[in-house]
Structure formats: structure tokens, C-alpha cells
């Protein structure tokens, strides 16, 4: 009992659940506002994603006549649940050290694709030809960006593992703790290629240009999302907000987790700032400065640049550099 209550708290309030949702929406709002500034626009209010969700909650959910109802409606929940669990695994240094337990990096690796899978399920359940195209594109892209992700995770885990006595350290809290004690990986030249690979992985997993192929508006009209409306669509947006906290938080935990002096509250803010910084560099500016790859180009891109970079780090770590 004593273990479950805090775990539940971490899942539902902080850092998962409420906190992650709020942080995700805030990050989205910031993203839109900064993007607007880059394009000489005023942009929406910071809370715009919140208004959007409230609005979507009040709309009707239309289900295409030819759709598979059950799959169509559960798909948005799959992604949401997966991301809510993931969010609880992200350590916020100085405020929360992550759920105790081994191997949460592996759990993250397995859960991270869930939103994409949800999209694929939803897309194929909607029985729209665009959904089907979105499905195959998402699949293709996922295969491409999972490779560098795995290599980056392994590089980090082995770097920490090597320091604590061989093998790989798959606990995120241990990874963070190690860096707080021995210096952050962002200052470690051996880990730079992996960090760059992670930066390149982010736009792919978040589905923003140049890797927004599965939802390409002008080609396949938002593909899998085409048929969704109302609360169901809202869940997809919510999932995407949560996912951005997860992947950005993961990046922070893996490369620059150090806290600042001050209380937990200050460190939560510091964590958010770091997430925001990571987001601006890897997502906001990148998507403003690029167009969209064709799916085959996106695929080869991942195999050509991020994968070798991440492998380079991995090999260096393995060689004990």
C-alpha cells in the first residue's frame, strides 16, 4: 500500500498525469508562439492548445460509416495511456528522481511508439484511403527513427554502465544521478554524436517537418487524423502534448539533467525551461526552416545521418574512449 499511493501520485499528478498534460500543452503553446514569431506573426495566446481541447471536447464525434467502430474509438486511448505511463518515468532532477526500478529506459523504448501505433490503428480503422497511406508512411518512418533511438539509448546506458562497473545501466534515475555526480553528457565529446542523433530523432517522432509525412496536409490531408473529430481528435492532440514532454524530458534526463540550487519548485521550472530549450532547437526552428521530405527521402535520411552518428557514440563508448 505504501508503495502504490506514491506511484499513483506520480502517475496521475506529478510528473505524469496532470503535470505532464499541463506542461505539454504549455510547451505546445510556446512552440506555436515562437513559430509565429519566426514567421513574422503575432501568433496565438500561450493557452491556445487548452482552448482547442476545451472546444474539441464539446464537439460531436463523427464515425465514418465504413469504419471499425471499436478500433476507431480505442485508438486515441491507446496512445494516451501509453504516454501517461511514460510521463511518470521521466525524472525531474531536484524534484523527482523517477520511479524506482530497473530498466525503465527499455520500457520507454517499447512504449514510445504507442502514439504512432495508435495513429496507424486509427488510420486503418477509419477505412479511408488516406488513412491507409498514412499507415504505411507512419510504419516506414517509425522503422527508420527507432534505429537511432535504440543506439542513443544504448550509448547512454553503456556510458553510465561502464562507469558503475560494466554492462548497461537501464534505469533513467541512475543515468540522471550519475551525470549529476560526474558531469553531464552534453559536455562529453564522446556523447556529442549521440546527442545530435537524438536532436534529429525528435522531429521524426513528433511528426513535424521535415518528417511530417504521415500527416502531410497537402498530400494526404492529415492522413490518419482525417476522419477524426471532437473529443477523439482531442485525445490525439493530448497524446501529442504528453509525448512532447516525454521525449523532451528523456532528452534532458539523458544529456543535461543537472538541477539548480533551490527547492523542488525551482527545479520543476528549470526542467521545463530545459525542455523548452530543447524543443525550440530541435523542433520549432527546424520545422520553420524546412519543408517536408518524401517518405523515401525521410527513410534514407535516418539511415544516413542519425543512425551512424548514434552508432559512432555507441562504438566509442564500447571502446571505452
Amino acid at each position: 500500500m505504501n508503495d502504490i499511493l506514491p506511484a499513483l501520485f506520480h502517475m496521475l499528478v506529478f510528473p505524469g498525469g496532470l503535470f505532464a498534460v499541463a506542461a505539454g500543452l504549455l510547451l505546445k503553446g510556446l512552440d506555436r508562439r515562437v513559430e509565429a514569431r519566426l514567421q513574422r506573426r503575432v501568433g496565438p495566446p500561450l493557452l491556445q492548445p487548452v482552448f482547442d481541447l476545451i472546444k474539441l471536447a464539446g464537439k460531436e464525434t463523427l464515425i465514418p460509416a465504413t469504419a471499425n467502430r471499436a478500433a476507431f474509438l480505442t485508438a486515441p486511448l491507446i496512445g494516451f495511456t501509453g504516454m501517461a505511463v511514460c510521463a511518470a518515468l521521466i525524472p525531474v532532477s531536484g524534484a523527482y528522481s523517477g520511479l524506482a526500478g530497473m530498466g525503465d529506459m527499455l520500457v520507454l523504448f517499447y512504449l514510445l511508439p504507442l502514439p504512432a501505433i495508435a495513429l496507424m490503428v486509427g488510420g486503418s480503422a477509419s477505412s479511408s484511403p488516406f488513412g491507409a497511406l498514412g499507415f504505411s508512411r507512419e510504419m516506414c518512418l517509425m522503422l527508420a527513427y527507432e534505429i537511432p533511438l535504440l543506439a542513443v539509448l544504448l550509448a547512454v546506458a553503456m556510458r553510465v554502465g561502464a562507469a558503475v562497473g560494466g554492462g548497461a545501466e537501464l534505469s533513467l534515475s541512475a543515468v540522471a544521478a550519475h551525470q549529476i555526480a560526474h558531469g553531464q553528457f552534453i559536455a562529453d565529446p564522446v556523447m556529442w554524436p549521440a546527442f545530435i542523433a537524438y536532436l534529429l530523432f525528435l522531429p521524426g517522432t513528433m511528426g513535424v517537418p521535415p518528417f511530417d509525412v504521415p500527416e502531410a496536409e497537402t498530400e494526404i490531408i492529415e492522413g490518419p487524423l482525417l476522419e477524426y473529430s471532437g473529443p477523439a481528435l482531442g485525445f490525439f492532440h493530448l497524446t501529442s502534448a504528453l509525448k512532447s514532454v516525454v521525449v523532451l524530458g528523456l532528452g534532458v534526463a539523458m544529456f543535461f539533467p543537472a538541477p539548480v540550487p533551490g527547492g523542488a519548485f525551482v527545479n520543476v521550472l528549470w526542467f521545463l525551461c530545459k525542455c523548452a530549450g530543447l524543443m525550440l532547437v530541435s523542433l520549432t526552428v527546424v520545422k520553420s526552416a524546412t519543408g517536408r521530405f518524401r517518405v523515401d527521402q525521410a527513410f534514407t535520411f535516418y539511415l544516413r545521418y542519425p543512425a551512424p552518428l548514434a552508432l559512432a557514440s555507441l562504438i566509442l563508448v564500447w571502446q571505452g574512449a
Binding site: R32, A36, R41, G43, P44, P45, D52, L226, E227
Partner: peptide
């Protein structure tokens, strides 16, 4: 386009009729 920027009014231009208000 930036000159009129309806996004500051919260508008978003969507590609699917199912997302529209």
C-alpha cells in the same frame, strides 16, 4: 499569412472538414 494572422484569434486553418468549426 502573417499579415492577417488569424491564428492570433485562435483560428487554425484545417485540411479536414471533420476538424472545422
Amino acid at each position: 499569412i502573417p499579415r492577417y494572422d488569424v491564428e492570433r484569434l485562435g483560428c487554425k486553418y484545417c485540411g479536414s472538414p471533420r476538424h472545422a468549426d
